[in-house]
């Protein structure tokens, strides 16, 4: 049976990150939307339920922590993956307290993101070992 494509939202104020992740995740069979501004990403989340959200933390305007809180309020079962270039112990702990699925410090290679996204997919589809 053909499974529905999972929808992924990527939010990072660095266009290069979106540009790198989008084609690689689409190749893995996901439907991917990318945003570089958190307010636009939040508008998208208000209109569409994304299964997986990948978000940066440090951004102008609404930061990633606030964005993920708002996204979780709207869709509690969306799995959120935090990627950050300015990692601290506090942000890692706070992210998990807010219920994120995983926390990844930059730089990362694509296989690392693929592994985490696949684990999130397994959880969503209920096929986790």
């Amino acid at each position: 049976m053909v499974q529905n494509k999972l929808k992924i939202l990527i939010l990072d104020d660095e266009p290069i990150v979106c540009k790198r992740l989008k084609p690689s995740l689409e190749k893995q069979g996901f439907e991917v939307d990318t945003f570089t501004r958190s307010f636009e990403a939040l508008q998208a989340v208000e209109q569409t339920k994304y299964d997986i959200i990948i978000t940066d933390l440090k951004m102008e305007g609404m930061d990633g922590m606030r964005f993920l809180q708002e996204a979780k309020k709207l869709h509690p079962d969306s799995e959120i993956i935090v990627i950050t270039g300015f990692a601290t112990m506090e942000t890692a702990k706070e992210s998990f307290k807010k219920g994120v699925f995983d926390f990844i410090a930059k730089p990362f290679n694509l296989s690392e993101i693929h592994r985490v996204v696949m684990r999130a997919e397994a959880k969503i589809r209920g096929t986790q070992a």
Binding site: E14, I16, G85, F86, A87, T88, A105, P107
Partner: peptide, 14 residues
């Protein structure tokens, strides 16, 4: 590279 900018970000932060 983007990776090198990011590694430096992390060292500055830590």
């Amino acid at each position: 590279s983007q990776e090198s900018l990011e590694i430096l970000n992390q060292m500055i932060t830590i």
